[in-house]
């Protein structure tokens, strides 16, 4: 743990903006407090998107080192600090993925029509574990553009407006991508249910 925690941490009520200003003036304690607040989000996001622990570690470290290096670039009027940091993390993760070329980085046309139905058709209810496994498999195979909105909006419960700032697209695009992502996950659930049904009624 950071030393300041043992010696008396900066106040938890201190705003991110105040802490950020303190970081800009070279305060290690402020930096530590910011990491305590936002490090978990950055690591979880990087890990989920990259599915690679080493990338998540490297990105998390680089995001906070970037905060030390370019603390003058954050504009509290435009975004929350967590959003700004998450945006840096996203760019770094994407660079890593592009470099390794092992993920689905496809150009998604921003569709205007209806996305697929969320319902699916099987009359089978999966067990909790089966459902979790099916959705997890679906998540693993989603294009990164869809996966990241699931992680931001569903897992991190980020507002659409903030997710839009992180991803750098309009709010409407976040909504449509989230809808498409959920539709694909619902299909994954439906597919798993069908398989279960076939196994039970060969």
């Amino acid at each position: 743990m950071f030393e300041h925690e043992r010696r008396g941490q900066r106040s938890n009520s201190e705003s991110d903006t105040d802490l950020y200003r303190a970081v800009a003036q070279g305060s290690g304690e402020a930096m530590a407090t910011i990491y305590q607040r936002h490090g978990p989000l950055i690591y979880r996001f990087s890990f989920r998107i990259s599915q690679d622990q080493s990338i998540a570690e490297e990105v998390t470290q680089d995001v906070f080192l970037a905060l030390l290096r370019q603390s003058d670039r954050f504009d509290p009027a435009r975004a929350a600090l967590s959003t700004w940091l998450c945006g840096i993390a996203r760019r770094l993760v994407w660079k890593q993925l592009e470099r390794r070329q092992r993920h689905l980085l496809i150009d998604l046309p921003e569709e205007s029509g209806e996305a697929e139905s969320l319902e699916g058709d099987p009359d089978v209810t999966l067990s909790r574990n089966e459902a979790v496994a099916a959705v997890q498999r679906g998540l693993d195979t989603l294009p990164v553009q869809l996966k990241e909105v699931i992680v931001l909006c569903e897992f991190e419960e980020m507002k659409y407006e903030d997710a839009a700032l992180v991803v750098g697209v309009p709010v409407g695009t976040i909504r449509s991508r989230l809808h498409r992502a959920k539709a694909r996950l619902a299909l994954a659930l439906g597919g798993a249910a069908m398989n279960t049904s076939k196994e039970n009624n060969p």
Binding site: R128, V132, E154, L185, A186
Partner: peptide, 14 residues
């Protein structure tokens, strides 16, 4: 409904 099941599953994954 499949959408309810998905939402519950996403909550578990969350």
């Amino acid at each position: 409904k499949r959408s309810d099941e998905l939402n519950q599953t996403l909550a578990e994954l969350r």
